[in-house]
Design a protein around this nucleic acid. Structure first.
Lengths: 112, 112
DNA sequence: GACAAATACAACCATTTAGTTGGATATAAA
DNA sequence: TTTATATCCAACTAAATGGTTGTATTTGTC
């Protein structure tokens, strides 16, 4: 009945969703989930945009808190940070629950 | 171990995430979850943007498949459509699982 | 030391986005 | 029938976004 009370602030949530709202970044997210931390060139492998383009996408992910980076020699290694994804998941859970309930109420209402 | 194989296409997913990546639209999503279908003016109530602005946001939500609209007299009523939210949820579930596993592997690796 | 590789910084461009305003159209209410 | 309400369309603006290029800096390799 009550609206979703997010644990994280709305701005934090929107920045996570915005970060996920791009095909290239979803690809990076997928790549970072399949193993060790990876450098920018590694992550850019096979993508048809420049390294700079990838760097920008990684910065978006980093600002949203989805990844962390660490310098190692001349390379910069990015790794995934699961917490924000889980926050977003939790939020979507409550929204989905709310919407399902709303639809149930509506159905009953239509049946008089 | 394998990357998330989305049920829905990547473009569909990104448009859902993009639609959720805005505070006003998250607010609309919350409002639509708490009851009957609502008109544009009803949805715009209390928001400090114009009706046209709200209309635009609703169109983004509709293109992403998150809401449906139906004319009723001079009003247009919007209601929630849960499926895309659930698709997004499912996707985040697999990503989170993948990331947790990646972090576990990394931890074990660091411990030699 | 010279050269190659990985990243960083800055400027630039085209497109999209969030928002506005103004005027038109359709419907409901007086 | 006049008037008010709800939406729609189109044009416009400012800012953000996704991408590029060029140059510089650091670091590893020969």
């Amino acid at each position: 009945m009550s609206r979703p009370e997010p644990e994280k602030s709305i701005p934090e949530l929107t920045s996570v969703f915005t970060a996920l709202g791009d095909a290239t970044r979803l690809e990076l997210v997928a790549r970072l989930g399949s193993g060790q931390p990876r450098s920018i060139v590694q992550l850019a492998e096979g993508l048809e945009i420049t390294h700079q383009g990838v760097t920008k996408h990684l910065r978006v992910l980093e600002k949203a808190g989805l990844v962390m980076s660490e310098r190692s020699g001349r390379e910069k290694h990015y790794r995934c940070v699961p917490e924000p994804i889980n926050d977003a998941r939790t939020y979507l859970d409550t929204v989905a629950e709310q919407w399902d309930a709303a639809l149930l109420r509506l159905k009953k209402f239509v049946e008089r």
